[in-house]
């Protein structure tokens, strides 16, 4: 169990590193655009398009890390009134629903990327970017998110199990 937690933590940290790199890319790309426009009176023609792609990378690779560091918000009105056992059970149920939704989205995001690839869809911009490249961030990110959700669910399950033997 401990091994799984350590491993999933490592995975989400790596993903967060990619997210951070994406954030820096956005900043640099847009600053470059402002510079090029102000001083050279021209345009990179890709700043708007690629910063949006980077944002997709930032968000989807950040999902798991955000969960691991308790960054996703939830309403705790009911769970805060429950005992430890009830909290663990509610958390477990929530995680199962979340896993189901993430897995469902994963399945269809793979289809999205595959179709963009096989139908050779490109962006309607000067760069004519093949759409599957930025879109592939969605299934990859969701997969990493599911790893983290699984670890979260296991932790909740073990808390529930442990509390069973207490009065």
């Amino acid at each position: 169990m401990e091994k799984i937690f350590r491993w999933s933590k490592k995975v989400s940290d790596w993903a967060a590193l990619i997210s951070s790199a994406a954030m820096l890319c956005i900043v640099l790309l847009i600053l470059l655009e402002v510079f090029v426009r102000s001083f050279l009176n021209t345009s990179t023609m890709i700043a708007d398009e690629y910063s949006a792609y980077m944002y997709v990378v930032l968000v989807f690779f950040g999902l798991g890390y955000t969960l691991a560091t308790d960054g996703h918000i939830r309403v705790k009105v009911i769970s805060s009134r429950l005992n430890e056992r009830g909290q663990a059970l509610l958390d477990l149920c929530a995680t199962v629903v979340a896993l189901g939704l993430a897995g469902f989205a994963l399945k269809f995001s793979v289809a999205l990327v595959w179709e963009a690839y096989s139908l050779r869809m490109v962006s309607e911009t000067p760069a004519q970017t093949p759409m599957w490249i930025p879109q592939v961030a969605i299934p990859l990110g969701l997969l990493l998110f599911m790893v983290q959700l699984l670890a979260h669910g296991l932790a909740a399950a073990s808390r529930w199990k442990a509390s069973r033997f207490r009065p």
């Binding site: 954030m23 956005i26 900043v27 847009i30 708007d48 398009e49 910063s51 949006a52 792609y53 980077m54 944002y55 997709v56 930032l58 968000v59 989807f60 469902f104 989205a105 399945k107 269809f108 995001s109 289809a111 999205l112 930025p134 879109q135 969605i138």
Partner: peptide
């Protein structure tokens, strides 16, 4: 149909230049 809609909103709502102001 639901899956396609869900993935469509994932891609469309994040792939937005104006919204990029938010993380910045």
């Amino acid at each position: 149909k639901i899956g396609n809609l869900l993935v469509n909103s994932m891609w469309n709502s994040v792939n937005s230049w104006s919204l990029t102001a938010l993380p910045l």
